[in-house]
Design a protein around this nucleic acid. Structure first.
Lengths: 113, 113
DNA sequence: TGAACATATGAACACTTATTCATTTGTTGA
DNA sequence: TCAACAAATGAATAAGTGTTCATATGTTCA
């Protein structure tokens, strides 16, 4: 049997556990940040701050292949961070909502301090 | 030579490029988010919302090995997201500043919508 | 219909990363 | 000083990830 000689044990552990967000929420949170944790994706999102743009142009602007951009857009789409509309052969992507902007600006503050 | 039949070409590309944060900033931003993009680290940070805690207790609370926690704390330390103080044999970790809280809360809003 | 173009997707590969295990460093108290 | 404990670290490994290449899907227009 383990001795409880430390003040942190017992009740305090329980209190922290109680205040801690659910396991699932923390998992989702990490998953969200994971998406922002890639240069190509962050760049894509920042470009879309200025408005919608088609895949080809995104690729040119980023200097990466059409395939790479498409793969990353799929991930952003899956996380509901971007939306898209089709116009003939071309597909235009845009930010899904202003959350994205807020999240990026929030991180930006930490960088540029 | 490439035909510029598309309105987006030329000036517009330049405009987007101009408004886009520097390559270096975007890289740092992605690096920052990468740190939040791991369950163990996010949990560590959230626990530290409630106050400082020593390595052993962090490990117990997270149900991971002392070594694993220590490795992750090193990363958080390197990113200046946590600070620490030594008291005898034990080392107590705490959030470096309120930026961390803001960033996590910002992401949390997106999750719990 | 079929050629041409834009985008999406699957598989493969190189690279990164989180954990574990073994060990070291640092600190206390006997 | 030395045993006991807390934390840090290096190497190895397994799992995850981003890009590329080849190809498929979808759309337009002649």
């Amino acid at each position: 049997m383990e001795k409880e000689t430390d003040a942190m044990h017992g009740d305090d552990f329980a209190i922290v556990r109680e205040k801690l967000p659910d396991e699932e929420v923390l998992y989702d949170l990490a998953e969200l940040y994971k998406i922002f944790g890639d240069t190509t994706r962050v760049k894509l999102l920042c470009i879309l701050f200025e408005g919608e743009m088609c895949v080809q142009h995104l690729a040119e602007l980023l200097q990466v292949s059409q395939s790479a951009v498409s793969h990353q857009l799929r991930i952003l789409k899956g996380a509901r961070l971007v939306k898209y509309r089709r116009d003939g052969k071309t597909v235009y992507y845009a930010l899904a909502d202003d959350h994205v902007r807020e999240i990026i600006e929030c991180g930006m503050e930490h960088i540029t301090e």
